[in-house]
Amino acid sequence: MEPITRLEARAVPIDRPNVDTDQIVPARYLQKPRSAPFGDFLFRDLRFDADGSEKSGFVLNQPGYRGAKIVVAEENFGCGSSREHAVWALYDYGVRAVIAPSFGDIFASNSAKNGLLTVALPAGQVKAMIEALAAEPGLEVAVDLDAQTVSLPDGPAHRFEIDPYRKHLLLNGLDELGFTLSQLAQIEAFEKTYAG
C-alpha cells in the first residue's frame, strides 16, 4: 500500500448516482485471489462486451479518461455489497482517490484500509467538477491530503473533511491492524471485566 500525500492526475467523471459495488466489480470475480489482476475487472460489464471487446461509449475507454487515477462520481458511490474487491479493482486500475457527495459506508471504510482516498464534497462542487471534466477530457485534478483540498487547474481549492486517524494511515501507508495489535493490553483489560 503506497502512502498518499498529494495527487495531481487525470480524472474520470462517472455521472450517475448509486454506482453499486456490483457495477464496480461483478460478483463472478469474487472468488479470485487478491493477486488476480482486479484492475481488468473494474467496471467490467460497463467497459467491455461479453466477448471482451471494449465498449467505446464507456467513459473510461475514451482517450482523455483512460488510465485515470481519480474518479469523480455522483452520490452514494460504492453502495451495496461489502465486497472489498471493489476497492481492489479501483486500486489495481491505478485509482488513488474517489470524489463524490457521499459513499456507501462499508466501501468508504474498505477504501481507507487499502490506500484509496474517498473525498466527500458538497453535491454542487462535485457537479461542477463533473461538468468541467466532461467539457475538457484529460483535465488533471489535484488532491492534497495533507492540506485536505481538491482543486481543478486555476479553480478554487475545495476543502474536505477526513478523520485524522484515517488521514494518518493514508499519509503513511499504514494499516490499521498493526496499530490495534499495539493496543492489545487495553483489549485484554476490557475482557477482564466484560460480562457479555
Binding site: S82, S109, N110, D175, T180
Partner: peptide, 21 residues
Amino acid sequence: GIGASEVAHVLATQTLWQRRP
C-alpha cells in the same frame, strides 16, 4: 457488515474500529 480487511482485523483482535453512526 464489514469488509475483508475488517474480517481479518476482528479475527486477530476480536475488535473493530467504527465511526459512531
